[in-house]
Simulated assay, not measured.
Amino acid sequence: MQEAIDRVMVTYGMIAQLSPEAERNLRQAVTSYLATSPETDSDKLAIEGLKFARETAGQG
């Protein structure tokens, strides 16, 4: 799951500029969200996480 979280954060970082605090908060939110997912495929988790990040940060 860590690989998916890292991919979400790198990809989202290309979309929006976040302060270090906002990045930490978003990483925690994405981690919590993906921890509840029944999905195990890293690619699918990354897609779910990116969708969540966009919605959470108001970019979706």
Score class of each variant (00 low, 15 high):
Ala53Leu: 07
Ser32Ile: 14
Pro38Arg: 12
Ile47Gly: 07
Met9Trp: 13
Gln17Ile: 11
Ala4Glu: 03
Thr36His: 12
Gln17Lys: 10
Thr31Gly: 15
Ser37Cys: 00
Ser32Trp: 09
Arg54Ser: 07
Arg24Tyr: 10
Asp41Gly: 03
Arg54Trp: 00
Gly60Lys: 07
Asn25Leu: 13
Ala57Ser: 11
Ala29Asn: 09
Glu23His: 13
Asp43His: 08
Arg27Asn: 02
Gln2Val: 12
Pro38Met: 10
Met9Lys: 13
Gly58Glu: 10
Gly13Val: 01
Arg7Ser: 04
Ile5Val: 04
Phe52Val: 02
Gly58Pro: 00
Glu3Leu: 14
Ile15Thr: 09
Arg7Asp: 05
Asp6Phe: 14
Asp6Glu: 03
Ser19Val: 09
Ala35His: 08
Ala46Gln: 05
Gln59Ala: 11
Ala46Tyr: 08
Ala16Asp: 08
Arg24Phe: 10
Glu39Tyr: 00
Lys51His: 04
Arg54Ile: 01
Ala4Ser: 01
Ile47Gln: 10
Ile5Phe: 15
Arg24Asp: 09
Gln59Val: 12
Thr31Phe: 13
Val30Glu: 01
Asp43Lys: 11
Met9Arg: 02
Leu34Asp: 02
Ala57Asp: 02
Glu48Val: 00
Pro20Ala: 14
Glu39Gln: 05
Pro38Cys: 07
Met14Gly: 11
Leu45Lys: 11
Thr36Cys: 11
Asn25Ala: 07
Gln59Arg: 11
Gln17Val: 03
Arg24Cys: 10
Glu23Leu: 03
Arg7Gly: 02
Leu50Gly: 06
Gly58Asn: 09
Ser19Trp: 07
Gly60Glu: 03
Phe52Cys: 06
Gln17Tyr: 01
Glu39Ala: 06
Leu18Thr: 02
Ser19Ile: 07
Gln17Asp: 07
Thr31His: 14
Glu23Asn: 07
Tyr12Thr: 01
Met14Gln: 10
Glu39Pro: 02
Pro38Thr: 13
Asp6Lys: 15
Glu21Val: 13
Arg7Cys: 04
Met9Ala: 08
Ala29Asp: 05
Val8Gln: 00
Tyr33Ile: 01
Tyr33Ser: 02
Glu39Ile: 02
Lys44Leu: 09
Gln28Trp: 09
Ala22Arg: 10
Ile47Trp: 03
Glu23Val: 03
Thr31Lys: 15
Val10Ala: 14
Met14Tyr: 07
Glu3Ile: 09
Ala53His: 02
Ala16Lys: 06
Phe52Met: 09
Gly49Asn: 11
Glu55Leu: 09
Ala57Lys: 07
Val30Asn: 03
Arg54Gly: 05
Arg54Thr: 00
Arg54Asp: 03
Asp6Ile: 00
Tyr12Leu: 04
Glu48Lys: 09
Ser37Leu: 09
Met9Phe: 12
Asn25Ile: 03
Pro20Cys: 11
Arg24Lys: 11
Leu26Cys: 05
Lys44Trp: 04
Gln59Thr: 08
Gly58Gln: 10
Arg7Gln: 02
Pro20Arg: 13
Gln2Phe: 13
Ala29Glu: 03
Gly58Tyr: 04
Leu34Gln: 04
Asp41Ile: 03
